[in-house]
């Protein structure tokens, strides 16, 4: 499983579920995966390719779901969300239909493809939709568990999957329903991260540790709804919080955390790490693109050290 991509982990598990439940259907907009080849071959009536037509993917999924099917739509993230956003709003979110939107390609994971295929806005816009639950796994083991989780949901859901094989972050058991897990405990501050930035946060934490700053690392894998009270307590205890996301700062995880803390009148310093208000025509690997926007563990560590030093508690 550690060498499996998130989408294969997710769809392999869904394939097992679909053998026992013919209601499960995958509706794809001309997007494949090795795990889906198997799905298409063995469960041909449960796999539907609508072609490169994302609005139709959403409306067909809605019609199927209204007829008792358990539907998963699937495409590269910008196309699964932004391209058909209003169709998702009107048909899935507004009518509160249990369709799971599966997008692959978090942040810069299509690092060879340029900004058309980067997904750095999806969280901001999908978060704005009432009734929508949003999941973002940090490794393939978790992605597989999300297949079971979404199978049992009765409302709209969006699952953001990374394209790359990410290392298994933590093998310890954790409560999937809480929406977050502690990867590290420390008393000097807290890093809140999601998706591929969770393993990045662990790297940052190790570097900070060398400088005598011991921080907690929390992996937030359910981005909506957030466990408000839990995060208020975490922030209170930590004294300061830094958020890490491979996503635009406008409206992403950091925004969500600031909104939450402000709503609870909690004055805790927050430092956000994410993508500034820009697009990047950069190639040469994901690490390079992360470096270009200050998301490498080295830069984040340096920034936090500088920031923490200046903080007045």
């Amino acid at each position: 499983m550690t060498s499996t991509t998130m989408r294969d982990a997710f769809f392999d598990r869904l394939y097992q579920l679909a053998w026992n439940d013919r209601r499960i259907m995958v509706v794809a907009a001309d997007m494949g995966a090795p795990s889906l080849d198997k799905f298409r071959r063995d469960l041909s009536t449960q796999f539907l390719n609508v072609g490169i037509a994302e609005q139709t993917m959403v409306t067909i999924a809605t019609g199927l779901a209204l007829s008792g099917k358990k539907v998963y739509t699937y495409a590269i993230m910008p196309f699964a969300t932004l391209r058909c956003y209003e169709a998702i709003k009107v048909n899935i979110a507004l009518m509160n239909i249990a369709v799971t939107i599966v997008g692959v390609g978090t942040g810069f994971s299509y690092d060879d493809s340029g900004p058309t295929h980067h997904s750095t806005e999806d969280l901001s816009v999908m978060r704005a939709l009432p009734n929508m639950t949003i999941y973002c796994p940090s490794d393939s083991l978790m992605a597989a568990r999300f297949a079971d989780l979404t199978y049992n949901l009765n409302s709209p859901c969006y699952v953001r999957l990374d394209r790359k094989v990410l290392p298994a972050v933590d093998r310890k058991d954790y409560d999937l329903s809480s929406g977050y897990r502690f990867l590290l405990n420390g008393e000097n501050g807290c890093l809140l991260a999601t998706g591929n930035m969770a393993p990045q946060a662990l790297k940052v934490a190790r570097k900070l540790h060398q400088a005598g700053i011991r921080v907690s690392v929390v992996d937030i894998f359910r981005l909506k709804p957030l466990q408000e009270k839990a995060f208020v307590e975490i922030a209170k205890k930590a004294g300061w919080v830094a958020t890490l996301e491979e996503h635009l700062l406008a409206g992403g995880l950091g925004s969500a955390i600031i909104e939450l803390l402000t709503d609870h009148q909690l004055r805790v310093p927050v430092k956000r790490f994410g993508v500034e208000d820009r697009y990047l025509y950069e190639y040469g690997g994901r690490n390079h693109i992360q470096n270009m926007c200050g998301l490498s563990p080295e830069v984040i560590t340096m920034e936090i050290k500088k920031w923490v030093k200046d903080l007045r508690f």
């Binding site: 539907l48 609005q55 139709t56 959403v58 409306t59 067909i60 999924a61 809605t62 019609g63 199927l64 779901a65 209204l66 007829s67 008792g68 099917k69 209003e86 169709a87 009107v90 048909n91």
Partner: peptide, 17 residues
Amino acid sequence: GSLGYGLGIGAGMALAA
């Protein structure tokens, strides 16, 4: 009310039927 979606939902229902 947002135009252009009813036929798609209908097609999804037709396929399910």
